[in-house]
Design a protein around this nucleic acid. Sequence first.
DNA 1: CAATGTTTGATTGTGCACAATTAATTGGGG
DNA 2: CCCCAATTAATTGTGCACAATCAAACATTG
Lengths: 150, 150
Amino acid sequence: MQSPPTLAAHDPMLKLENQLCFPFYAVSRQLTKTYQPYLQALGLTYPQYLVLLLLWEHEQLTVKELGDRLLLDSGTLTPLLKRMEQRQLLSRRRDPRDERSVVIGLLPTGRALEAQARDIPGQLLAKAGLDLDELAALRTQLTQLLARLT
Amino acid sequence: MQSPPTLAAHDPMLKLENQLCFPFYAVSRQLTKTYQPYLQALGLTYPQYLVLLLLWEHEQLTVKELGDRLLLDSGTLTPLLKRMEQRQLLSRRRDPRDERSVVIGLLPTGRALEAQARDIPGQLLAKAGLDLDELAALRTQLTQLLARLT
DNA sequence: CAATGTTTGATTGTGCACAATTAATTGGGG
DNA sequence: CCCCAATTAATTGTGCACAATCAAACATTG
């Protein structure tokens, strides 16, 4: 009687609203858009911001280490890092002890963005309407799911 | 004493592991990779699969309606739909009653993929290690977050 | 009906994202 | 020492993703 307005029987598992992945896909893109105005003020894209988060903490990392932490491969990172190198945010050089590795180092211009980025996380949490407890709980679930998928 | 191996004081809010967005970003990409072998068997990408999910349910939708439901704009959808049109999965034509609108219609080739896709959601849930209750709870949280962001 | 503003897709340009391939380098094992 | 498998980036090609712009069609108002 109160069936949906479809003409034929339709497998409910194949409805968009019942998909597992779509909410993650949509939330991820919406979150990136939410970051965008803050990052645009720093001239950064979201993946570039992630690279800087790691460099602010570690100062030097190889392309491989960045890829392992961000789950991105060199086909994504190499051109992204070259663009950031052109802006003097970071340096790229071969490791003399292993010429296969490329070491990415934070430059002063990149370090200077750290201060300007300091209040971005807080503003994002406010926009998302999450308090720190909810955030921690959600992050735990997502991290567990991520571990099961990788 | 047990401080991390950083040289200077570092704002913990700017550590990657404490970010809100990164787990969503990473999980979303990992989920897409998890779908990939199943979708590759149908010759589909993940966004193309989402379009078909909607068309399997609704048969006909305008580009605008697809964009509203998937939160994608025409710059993403137009070339994607043209590729699917070339494969005879769907048709694209102007609405005679409003020539601004483009109506996307499911073609038999696209309908035929529905049967082949039927067990994808179940296999994905198994791989993610989620049961239906966990899934429903997670989806509720994500949908609420999405509503707050849009 | 004419002027005006709105809606809708398409186009353009930039930047990810990743599979597949290539190339250089390294570290062993014989 | 030399061959050989493994490691690491870079390259290439395809396909999203989105901002900005444009153009066509429609709706509304006077």
